[in-house]
Design a protein around this nucleic acid. Structure first.
Length: 487
RNA sequence: GGCGGCAUCGCCAAGUGGUAAGGCAAAGGUCUGCAAAACCUUUAUCCCCGGUUCAAAUCCGGGUGCCGCCUCCA
């Protein structure tokens, strides 16, 4: 069975064949570190996290690189506003980025290069472009001549002539062509600068990715990813620089993720419709955020809304409830019972899931479908478990081993790895922060209610239930007492 | 103006030409002192109009609507 990946270069799904069998080189554009990460970043990096995990799950030896842009106009501007050093500022937001991404369960890539630590490689690359006639001095800056590179536009489908007739073209007399872009920017007084053959300055934005990916992963990489908005001009320019310099194909498969929308429109700071990962994390469990993000195919837009997050939360609760029930069977199963295999229907269900999961993921990382398969499995477990109620305790079966055979697949999605109790109490904690209640109050009311129930004072018991329901607390009376959760 | 994407049940969403996954919500039932959870049952012919085909949500053409890129952006 082969893995299909939608390649932006062709606009089609293609069979994935890495350059070197068994290994994958993957580069994903990281952030410019000058502000908190937003939910759009979360979407992109969760998407590529799952891609990374799945490639490993499939047995590839993956080298994953994701960079940090730690020097650029926005960083300088922001640093100046607060009278800070650009380095301090970028380091702070790199750290905050790591906190946010770690919380979302996003694995750290193998290498996270920073632009400021790759200046030498960038200068080398620009020098090669000069030698080959693609770079030229544009005033004090250095620019890349787009017209010299015949493949320009092959990713975005844009033609230089058509671009020029477009409405918004930046006027810059120093450039030979409006779409030429800056490789090296001359330093202005007070700006951070590095020595170069073209005078003191700093790199243009596009050159860093070419330099980092080339120096770490080689001239041709298997996968290059980023948000759809990077297709033009960023990735188009990267291709131009890298291929002009090496004469080799830069990227075999370009993967681009869709946006996070709010009210069906692209989230953006200017409209004020904007959410940071940090704010969202205070309200929703990180796994809920993952489920939300993974319930839509990575290339489609996903609409961020409270309702959608809540729905995802309910869905995850259901999955964790199943997991909890499965783990309870461990203690219910008689100790002297022969361990070993789960009932055939469960084994069949588990292997059907494993197959279905791989099929879904092989089809351009269809996480939404994969999630659907997981619900089917959960359904089957629950049905079996309900049947077990009629079985004498010493004959009940432990299903834990069967569940654990799917842990590899769950790890790819990055969900359901927590102990269910831990998960539910973490969720409770988040909801509680939002309300005026604390766990102690709730426990006290539950105790009071149970005393009333014992005394058959059901009126009193019901009024306590009602009181808690109004506050969003749901009680569940089980054989081992009463548990509660937040709605 | 150029290029690209999308339109599937109340909401979210998958869907590889053969007759519509899944989640949320809702309704009825089992269970429960009452509930909750779980289980069982119920709910779509896929924006419109043409065409190709034995057969189309899936392919082609034409509409309509929404969105994105072309400017820093995941």
């Amino acid at each position: 069975m082969s893995l299909l990946i939608h390649n932006s270069l062709s606009g089609k799904k293609e069979e994935f064949v890495p350059l070197v069998p068994g290994t994958v080189s993957m580069y994903v554009c990281g952030i410019t570190a000058y502000d908190y990460s937003h939910i759009g970043h979360a979407r992109a990096y969760v998407a590529f996290d799952v891609i990374y995990r799945y490639l490993k799950y499939r047995g590839y030896d993956v080298t994953y690189v994701r960079n940090f842009t730690d020097i650029d106009d926005k960083i300088i501007k922001r640093a100046n506003e607060s009278g800070r050093d650009t380095r301090d500022l970028s380091e702070e937001f790199i750290q905050k980025y790591h906190e946010d991404m770690d919380a979302l369960g996003i694995l750290r890539p193998n290498v996270e290069p920073k632009a400021t630590e790759t200046i030498g490689e960038m200068i080398d690359l620009i020098s090669r472009l000069f030698e080959k006639g693609y770079a030229y001095k544009a005033g004090d800056d250095v620019a890349f001549s787009v017209k010299k590179f015949s493949g320009y536009g092959k990713l975005s489908g844009k033609k230089i002539d058509e671009l020029e007739s477009g409405a918004r073209v930046e006027v810059d007399d120093k450039k030979q062509d409006p779409f030429d872009f800056i490789l090296w920017k001359a330093a202005k007084p007070g700006e951070p600068a590095w020595e170069s053959p073209w005078g003191k300055g700093r790199p243009g934005w596009h050159i860093e990715c070419s330099a980092m990916s080339g120096s770490i992963l080689g001239d041709t990489i298997d996968i290059h990813g980023g948000g759809k908005d990077l297709i033009f001009p960023h990735h188009e320019n990267e291709i131009a620089q890298s291929e002009a310099a090496t004469g080799k194909p830069f990227v075999r498969y370009f993967i681009h993720n869709g946006f996070v929308n709010i009210d069906s429109e692209k989230m953006s700071k200017s409209t004020g419709k904007f959410f940071t990962v940090r704010d969202i994390r205070n309200q929703y469990h990180p796994e809920v955020i993952r489920v939300f993000l993974l319930s839509v195919h990575y290339r489609s837009p996903v609409d961020f809304s409270e309702k959608n997050l809540r729905d995802s939360g309910e869905a995850l609760n259901r999955l964790y409830s199943t997991k909890a029930r499965i783990f309870e069977t461990e203690s219910n199963a008689a100790e002297n019972r022969q361990g070993g295999s789960a009932p055939k229907e469960i084994e069949d269900a588990v292997s059907a899931f494993t197959e279905g999961f791989a099929e879904a993921m092989d089809d351009d990382f269809n996480t939404a479908l994969a999630l659907g398969k997981l619900f089917d499995l959960s359904h089957l477990f629950n049905r079996f478990l309900d049947g077990q109620k009629d079985v004498p305790e010493n004959e009940r079966v432990s299903l834990v081993a069967a569940w654990e055979t799917i842990s590899g697949a769950l790890d790819v999605l990055g969900i359901l790895s927590r102990d269910p109790d831990t998960y539910f109490s973490e969720v409770k904690g988040l909801r509680l922060t939002d309300s005026a209640l604390d766990a102690g109050d709730i426990e006290r009311l539950i105790a009071e209610r149970n005393a009333a129930r014992k005394a058959k004072d059901f009126a009193r018991a019901d009024s306590i239930r009602e009181e808690l329901t109004e506050k969003g607390v749901i009680l569940e009376d089980g054989p081992d007492g009463t548990t509660w959760k937040m709605k």
